[in-house]
Nucleic acid binder design. Structure first.
Lengths: 250, 250
DNA sequence: CGCTACGTTGAGAACAATCAACCCCGGTGG
DNA sequence: CCACCGGGGTTGATTGTTCTCAACGTAGCG
């Protein structure tokens, strides 16, 4: 047990600190085309680089705590982040899994409305919210990009509501696997043997199911030949067409 | 059965047409402070008025069909609108109920990702999407307001995911009634005897329940004295504190 | 080498869905 | 005028999917 860590802060290790003396991490950012920074021109990237801090977050470590002052926004650059809300008795609903390029921390209120933790060891770019807001005013193109990302997220949230409210366990799992596949593809990773870094419990909390039901449903899909469970958390979508049909409720 | 109506179009009756010859409907708009137009100054309101069409939509009539080209955006000015997505076998998930001031039609893609219908007779302001986009570029303040509305909606969507994935029937109904109460209050209506214009079936499709479960849960809350069912779709929240606790999962 | 976290599988329970009957009300047409 | 019809709501009986509780296997790690 660490002895001198400030709670929820000490684990966040700056990997590369403020931009001025170091080479800009943004210039070489490999996922910029996916991120908020896609909207930026060269000189604007400089301004972002000047206010960014690159952080490493270990597996399971918190990044955001619901209810805390919303002083930072983040951009995921590697790894996977889980975002969730809790009921007071501890029931948890994952509202999303974030991958490189995804944005995190948008808040209307003065406090975060959700919590976020690393699923696997991850790196994120952290920006002071106030400074980002100033940049948004200065560069409307960036604000437009952010609006685009927000409305994209909104569409995804509505799709997830359809899943949570109206799909059964098998349809939920099929939808989930296909979602991971599509997002991997967007990032230039293989669309078929997909990497599933999160636990059965995490998946359950994302889909409104229990660990056991997730496990049973995986087993069921496997026994029917629709998927194959490979070592190291990889899953092969052996019958993608079939999975698509199941996911749509056909 | 109407004989000459163009399908899904004929029922949309322009109440007041384009702004130029008519007195601007926007100038007297009573819910402007709640709407996108809250961000506008007098001369900017003129520009909105120039591109707006005010429509009346009868109870049950469609406003948006999922998959159709997203050529308009809307602002609700009276009544109530239901927004939903369907699975191919007909299962329906309501993604929201919209009331005066709420915005509708934001789309990243070229087509709508959801459908929308009037719950009760309603009026909406309709704007050509292209022209609104031009105004957003011209007036960044308006774009900022829209981003604020989008991130507010995103927070609401996450709250709804928590409800759909992790709350039981009683908690869902309690949350729903309190949501209606808060939104009525925001609009200057009484927060307590609330008006519930939508059917049990609509409520079920919003909460991920069946009609029967919604009805039973209402009856149950009534028998426990938590609510009172008044005539004309009004509901009294007799024990608001208790409902709050139930809704939070306490 | 044991501990813990995670995953799987089984048995039984529970909550909500399904199927069904009935009521009430408003609209329509005989 | 009134009988009929259809939609919405309520309630009951039964079913079924998922949850809960439990046991056990396995892999990683101190």
């Amino acid at each position: 047990m660490a002895t001198f860590d400030v709670k929820n802060i000490g684990h966040l290790r700056p990997a590369i600190s403020r931009g001025e003396t170091m080479p800009s991490p943004c210039a070489a950012c490999s996922i910029r085309h996916l991120s908020l920074c896609a909207a930026l021109q060269e000189n604007e990237v400089q301004e972002m680089a000047a206010i960014v801090t690159t952080l490493e977050v270990g597996a399971g470590e918190p990044l955001i705590d619901e209810g805390q002052p919303a002083v930072h926004v983040f951009n995921v650059t590697s790894g996977a982040i889980r975002v969730y809300k809790l009921l007071i008795d501890g029931r948890r609903q994952m509202t999303g899994f974030l991958f490189p390029g995804d944005f995190l921390g948008l808040a209307n209120e003065e406090t975060y409305a959700y919590s976020a933790e690393a699923v696997t060891a991850s790196t994120v770019c952290r920006f002071p919210r106030r400074k980002i807001e100033a940049l948004l005013i200065k560069y409307p193109r960036m604000e437009r990009r952010l609006l685009g990302m927000a409305s994209h997220e909104l569409a995804a949230a509505q799709e997830q509501m359809l899943l949570l409210g109206r799909k059964n366990a098998r349809e939920k799992i099929a939808s989930f696997l296909l979602m991971l596949s599509r997002r991997a593809e967007q990032r230039g990773l293989p669309a078929d043997p997909i990497f599933v870094p999160m636990s059965r419990n995490d998946i359950g909390d994302y889909l409104g199911l229990t660990t056991e039901t997730v496990s049973r449903t995986f087993s069921d899909l496997k026994s029917k030949g629709a998927i194959e469970l490979l070592p190291a958390g990889k899953v092969r979508l052996a019958q993608r067409e079939h999975l698509e049909e199941v996911a749509e409720g056909a």
